[in-house]
Nucleic acid binder design. Structure first.
Lengths: 214, 214
DNA sequence: TATTGTGAAGGAATTCACAGCC
DNA sequence: GGCTGTGAATTCCTTCACAATA
């Protein structure tokens, strides 16, 4: 449960995302029967500088052997421990519109240890139903359900106007980490972490680069 | 069509995403009848340092008046020009699974000037149908359709295994900017830009932070 | 020989601070 | 007085380069 940081330096924002990529690359190696690797080999797979990879890993411990490299399986476990995916997480979904339903139906989350175990909506036609094995509750009952089921992570997939309410509800229910797809800024209480995915922004990034033909 | 860069310095990676946020904040101001603003006021809305905002804008021109600030409407237009959203873009969607359907159904894209005007899949049950007003073609015919309709942007919403093929097909069809939801690394031809959104990675970011209780 | 872990160097992005303009 | 635009200072991140280790 405890993280493996040896009281080291501050971990850069960017390092965590790269750790996810190392994890994938290593898992694929393991699937291919490769048992040993090196920062140079990983570098080829993920596209970052090899020193970058060594430095990222070093924030969390010493996992390699000088002259030999890394043992794939043990490094995988180490990274899983760092990312907190060597366990299962209970996730609540707020909003079962098209996007919410896509998230419900996406099997990949379960494979990674994320169990969407309840959903909330305000549409009477959906409340009480069970979709993809997940019960849909009235958003008005969310706090009780969240507390009872001890939900730890939340996903917000509703329009911007209702997103702040959804976040506040999740927080009251004990959720401290939230992924949101709603655009717009949220007031985030202290101790709570919100990660935003903004699809329109990503498209705008594309149109910017397509416009200024570099 | 031409971008408004006055042959200035290199634009930081991060600036473009922030421009999208400025755009939203300004649009909201305009909706509220606010006609003038300042970097300090914008700073309150978007949460970045005011100097940051001025510097971001300065990469693309001089839009403000010292002592007075910015005129909301003209700044909006300027940013729209920079981002390339003062026009409409034709977008192709590859993969009409749950996520693809959610993207088809999302009205927000149209509002921002992005028209998903064709979709591709390999499921015979879907090919030939029209969903949300968008015709679904056989992925095998994609190159012809892309060229004929002069599609400029692509969205990939299919599993990892088929993503590379999808990208290659889009590129042959003339698409140079692609947003992908498939995890895993893609071989990207020169001159093509790929932006990746990785939902599992975002959840892992949450679990990391929920684990190492800062 | 091969490779890690890391201090030092280099580069990129952010913030400071202020001259100049309204 | 208020605010922009921008050089300078600072902070943050990446890459280099090498001593240490197997």
């Amino acid at each position: 449960m405890a993280s493996k940081k040896p009281a080291g330096k501050k971990v850069p924002q960017t390092t965590v995302s790269r750790m996810s990529l190392y994890y994938r690359a290593l898992k694929q190696m393991l699937g291919n029967g490769i048992t040993a690797t090196s920062s140079a080999a990983l570098s080829k797979d993920v596209g970052f500088n090899d020193a970058q990879i060594r430095k990222d890993l070093a924030y969390f411990g010493q996992f390699g052997v000088p002259g030999r490299g890394y043992e794939v399986e043990s490094l995988l476990e180490a990274i899983a421990g760092v990312l907190g995916i060597n366990r299962r997480w209970k996730v609540a979904l707020v909003g079962v519109g098209h996007l919410g339903y896509a998230l419900l139906a996406y099997k990949g989350f379960g494979d990674q240890g994320f169990d969407i175990c309840c959903a909330f909506d305000n549409d009477p036609d959906k409340i009480g139903k069970t979709w993809e094995g997940v019960p849909i509750h009235d958003i008005a009952e969310a706090v009780d359900v969240l507390r009872e089921k001890q939900i730890e992570l939340g996903i917000i997939a509703i329009p911007e106007a209702a997103a702040q309410n959804a976040l506040d509800t999740l927080v009251v229910g004990g959720v401290k980490s939230v992924l949101t797809f709603a655009p717009g800024r949220l007031r985030v209480p202290p101790g709570v972490r919100v990660r935003r995915v903004d699809l329109a922004m990503e498209l705008e990034w594309l149109s910017y680069h397509a416009t200024s033909v570099t």
